[in-house]
Nucleic acid binder design. Structure first.
Lengths: 324, 324
DNA sequence: GTGCTTATGCTCAGTATAAGCATATGCCAG
DNA sequence: CTGGCATATGCTTATACTGAGCATAAGCAC
């Protein structure tokens, strides 16, 4: 049993660029979800007028996937790329825009960068693409007005009573419908449910229908799904790793920091408790300076304590360990 | 730099078929970290006498990467594959065993399967490969006897005083050396540190040295790193998603469940608190039956409540939300 | 029965969290 | 120069969750 997949799947599939591999070839692409928070909005770097994420073919010349991405981004944006992490590798057959397109393997990355000029080209707010994800001013009306009815119809559309009930339950839990609590981390699940239910343009387009009526701004191919993956990952990560600081200027006030987290999470936070959390975790230290950009009492300036990253190997246990 | 991404990608970012691409070929491989827990040991499916993870070329015929993996595993093992998740995609140039090998993109997956015959071929305990990761009977002696001295030597080997101190700090935090707390989630970081420090055979082999003295059992290429990635992921995931149940038989006692978690985490847990946790989370329900496999009072049998997965969209908040 | 073993139930203190109240410090209008 | 407004910052209370230990229950062997 030397090569396991090999036995199961007869001909080996090596990807030979420009080879004689008949009708279809495989392309390896890198796709970047580049995030920044400016002017209180979480933004993503896009190309072609906001309809696609930056992407390009994987070059063999690069030492690693990650390094390649980093080089490229810094060259393009002239902003240092603070943090990079791999998101997911997609190769689903049924996600391409057309069946005739070559099979693509897309390796996607999430990258965080510092605040920059808000008007810079290519940066669009997340919430253009996912208007239902921004709950900072309460549940967005699009949920009750558009999504909930459409999801209800989708649930009723199922063939068996069991499936109908299962879909209703799942929709309620995912979109916080019947009094369920909103969970901001389910961005990807929500998008996929809307896709399954035929409520997003990408699906309608694929089925040959008019794209009108799709919720949120669409993107090409499965780029919006990749963006959803990135948002979900960042929303989860921000809770247990100090990655927000990659999005902040070197010094900041606690309220600025809070607004940044709020922008990402799409929810408002309790000010005093947020502040207590920051202080007790010792993630920040005062610079001594203050700012009085806006009205009211001037706020103290803080900076991130890089030391903590080395000091403790973060990660809450969550397991009831035995006393040692 | 030649554009990794299409230069500035001014035009549409459509994906071109593999045209005028580089000279070397690219191979896309799937690699599986298949885990099970039998007889109190966490085990991984291997091939070629335990020296490699099962892998094979990606087939275009498959609907998706995940489905391809699933089909293959079920065909090979005749066990249903409970849970599959993507781990990571590797393409680092410097990880292959030989520089002349074709550039390989390895897409790795973590799969969980139910308890099976302990003696079945190909299954090896994780801890053969990572003896320093099993702390169920206290810190394994290999840490103090082999790793700590070797890491100390590695730290001293650095060129500047700053680097030496940084290495010492990092080693202590990662391996719980000077009284620091052990963190079982750092499996990958530990392996990578040992690799960097030249304490594992894979590194020695690459440098052309004798492999003797390497800690833990080695594997081919970077398979042990992939296994470390899988272990780390599972150890983290088990804390916030009910994935243990994928490794358990349909009914089980709470102690069996605890032993399973302990095997994975490599640590012992507090019995009563573990039980309280399980009950208050309502993840399990009594079947009504009891077992008296061993001595002592018979234990109640439980089963997993699949319902909870739909009921709540799990995930602790950890953010100080404002009252809505 | 007694003693051994494992299962299960309960308590108590320490800590973290949610939510609200109170005060401080600036600016600005009058 | 005083009162109103806006923001920053500090403090308090009730409640939940955790770590750790004690106590009891229910089988089995003798």
């Amino acid at each position: 049993m030397a090569s396991l997949f090999r036995e199961a799947f007869p001909p080996a599939v090596s990807i030979m660029p420009g080879s004689q591999r008949a009708s279809r070839s495989v392309v390896v692409d890198l796709i970047a979800v580049l995030a920044a928070v400016t002017a209180g909005e979480p933004r993503v770097m896009t190309v072609t007028k906001g309809s696609a994420l930056p992407s390009g073919p994987f070059e063999l010349a690069h030492r690693s996937l990650q390094q390649g991405l980093r080089d490229w981004v810094e060259q393009q944006t002239h902003h240092p790329l603070g943090y990079v992490e791999q998101l997911y590798t997609f190769a689903d057959k049924d996600r391409a825009d057309a069946d005739t397109a070559p099979r693509t393997i897309s390796i996607s990355y999430l990258g965080l960068t510092r605040e920059h000029d808000a008007a810079e080209a290519g940066w669009h707010s997340w919430y253009e693409y996912f208007p239902w994800e921004d709950h900072r001013a309460g549940p967005p009306p699009v949920i009750a007005r558009v999504l909930a009815p459409a999801l209800a119809a989708w649930a009723e559309d199922a063939s068996t009573a069991g499936m109908r009930s299962e879909r209703r339950l799942r929709a309620a839990a995912t979109f916080a419908l019947d009094g369920a609590r909103w969970n901001e981390e389910l961005t990807l699940q929500r998008y996929e449910m809307l896709y399954e239910a035929g409520i997003v343009a990408e699906r309608l387009r694929r089925e040959g229908h008019s794209e009108a009526g799709g919720a949120g701004r669409p993107m090409i191919a499965d780029h919006r799904r990749i963006l959803a993956t990135g948002i979900a990952r960042l929303r989860a990560k921000i809770k247990y790793r100090p990655v927000v600081f990659e999005l902040m200027p070197p010094t900041f006030t606690l309220l600025q920091l809070q607004r940044c987290v709020e922008a990402i999470a799409g929810r408002t936070l309790h000010k005093q408790n947020f502040r207590r959390l920051m202080e007790q975790q010792e993630l920040v230290e005062e610079t001594g300076g203050t700012t009085s950009e806006s009205l009211g009492r001037p706020a103290k300036l803080f900076r991130f304590r890089h030391a903590v990253v080395e000091e403790r190997a973060l990660a809450g246990t969550k397991l009831p360990l035995a006393p040692t």
